[in-house]
Amino acid sequence: MTTATLTPPATTPTTARPARRSWFSDVWLVMTRELRPVVREPFSVVFGLIQPLVFLGLFGPLLVGSVGESGLSGADVWQWFVPAILVMTTLFGTSTTGSNLQFEMQTGAHERMLVTPLSRSSQLVGRSLKELVPLTAQAVIVVLVMLPFGFRADPVGGVLGILMLAVLGIGIGSLSYALAIAVRKQEWMFWVVQQTVLFPLLILSGMLLPLEGGPRWMQVASSVNPLRWVVDAERALFAGDLTASAVAAGWVAALATAALGLVVGVRTIVRSTD
């Protein structure tokens, strides 16, 4: 009598499926990757403060000395000037971020990122969100430095003001990245366009001097400059006037800039082939 032996059915090896990634996890991965150099070398954040501190230290006293001509009261000069300098820090810092992408394109790091499973849109958004950290740090440092000189910052308004600057910075940074990709074969064009656009926006925003005494054409041009509305909103927020109409206009300008920057930036990087 023989005993039947049961042989287990043969099993075929199954191929492990890669874990599904979400778009938000890709954004987080890119953002943390971009932040590592900042954490390792925070000197870059401090270096970005040189220009605004020079303006505060050299231009500020001149503004205080000419308050009679500018229409400002001496006690409120810093309340008027410091919020504008915070916007300037955002403008100067984020408008040059495209140069970092240019360096990565030169070294081939950008191309290696494009062939990873990370979605291209998440790469742009992650890079842009990374700007929140240095912007916040720089704004806090400027405010703390100016407090002993008489600058008064409303706590709630200050937090909202820094948040508005972060939203604005996302938009400007995205446009800077898009510009770097668009002129990747003519890198010198990045600085030509950046400088050509930067200074008219700066002057027509009323950051440095009031525009009320300027020619009519400058006042009309400033009315369509989104930075003008953000500057006015920052002054109102840091003064504690949270319900001012200028605050609402500033949020509209900052959100519109962020939306435009992200749309243009994502479309540019998605179409990028090099």
Rank of each mutant, 00 (worst) to 15 (best):
R216P: 08
L101T: 08
R228I: 05
P148I: 04
V193G: 01
P83L: 04
V77P: 00
S70D: 11
G173S: 15
F190G: 02
V64K: 03
P155S: 11
F24W: 14
T14C: 11
R235D: 09
F24Q: 12
S99P: 00
I203E: 10
V197M: 04
S174V: 04
A166I: 13
Q106G: 09
V266G: 09
P52V: 06
P13M: 10
Q79K: 05
Q123A: 06
R152N: 05
W80E: 03
P215W: 10
I170A: 07
Q123E: 06
G240L: 06
K185T: 11
L132W: 15
L91E: 00
G261V: 04
Y177P: 01
T5W: 03
L242Q: 05
L175W: 04
A249R: 13
P37Q: 09
T2I: 09
A253T: 07
V87Q: 00
V263S: 08
T107K: 09
G93F: 04
I85W: 00
R216I: 11
A109G: 12
V77T: 06
M164N: 02
L209K: 11
V252A: 08
R21F: 07
V67N: 13
V143I: 15
G68N: 10
M207I: 14
T3R: 06
I141A: 15
V145F: 11
E212I: 05
M88T: 09
T5M: 14
P226F: 14
V142I: 15
N100A: 12
T15W: 04
G169V: 09
I162S: 03
V142W: 00
G161R: 01
V82M: 01
G108P: 03
R228S: 14
T7E: 13
G48R: 01
A253S: 06
G158K: 00
G157C: 14
A258D: 05
G65H: 08
V145H: 03
G214C: 09
E69Y: 13
V67E: 14
F190T: 03
A109T: 10
Q79M: 04
M146W: 02
T2K: 13
V77K: 01
L255W: 10
A259Q: 11
D232I: 07
V142R: 00
R271A: 15
L144D: 08
L175Q: 04
A221Q: 05
V263N: 09
L179Q: 03
K185F: 12
L165E: 00
W251L: 07
I141G: 08
I85G: 02
Q79V: 11
A258C: 15
V192Y: 14
L198R: 06
M113R: 13
D274W: 10
M218A: 14
I181W: 02
P9F: 11
L209N: 05
R184M: 02
L63P: 03
G157K: 04
